[in-house]
Design a protein around this nucleic acid. Structure first.
Lengths: 118, 118
DNA sequence: GCTATCTGTTACCTATTGGTAAGTAGTTAC
DNA sequence: GTAACTACTTACCAATAGGTAACAGATAGC
């Protein structure tokens, strides 16, 4: 008898989805990276690094690889001299719009509420 | 001259909000906890632990404290014998509705898309 | 030849996260 | 009295995240 499980399948599926989303956006830097690409279109490696205050090249490189592996960011090498590399969001990355907006709004509202009660 | 900063204030505020949201929901267990309380209303400590597969009491306790400190969860001690403790979402916790839904939908869509391409 | 710029990589270190196992303290049932 | 249930806490450990600093290989300018 599966007596413990009161949570319905659709709820569990929803929680699963939320966890997937969180995993893909996990860490300190993925949101700032996606944000920069979301609001600006394209960036070269160093330009992106300069726009995101405090990020080290090692970390930027790793996070971009993660995002690329998960099909949220596209990497394009231009054969200029010296070579440059462009990063931009994929359609999947851009489809995060609603999530980005919902989190952004809730976060700013929360911040207002907390400041109001202090 | 602040030459580097192309991102507008509203974008930066939005990213700030997203980061706040992420911080409050960070870690492996906060979403499952909020989900259980969101879909079920109230839970006692041990019941909650039993509904969330694999969580240790130490971790559950710590996560609930975090959530309580951030005003997302309310803790109520009932003076029954033996005493029981009830946890439920605050109105602020329930206000995560849109975020939960957006993340849940995007995550399930993403999972479908990934499975379709494999 | 020396320096600078581009896109990263490598080695190393530390702090936080999360896990296991056991214990605490009070009450109840057998 | 002993086992079980309530709600936790404590001590210890391992894996991961993220930071610093230096380096690498290519090209271009002085």
């Amino acid at each position: 008898m599966a007596e413990k499980s009161k949570l319905s399948d659709s709820c569990l599926r929803s929680i699963q989805g939320i966890r997937d989303t969180q995993d893909l956006l996990s860490g300190k830097w993925k949101i700032p990276i996606i944000g920069a690409l979301y609001f600006n279109g394209k960036f070269r490696f160093m330009d992106l690094g300069r726009h995101i205050e405090g990020i080290a090249p090692k970390v930027l490189s790793k996070e971009l690889k993660d995002l690329e592996m998960n099909h949220l960011v596209k990497r394009t090498v231009k054969d200029t001299m010296p070579i440059t590399v462009e990063y931009e969001l994929t359609p999947q990355g851009r489809s995060l719009k609603k999530v980005i907006e919902a989190m952004g709004e809730w976060g700013t509202d929360y911040r207002k509420a907390v400041l109001a009660n202090s």
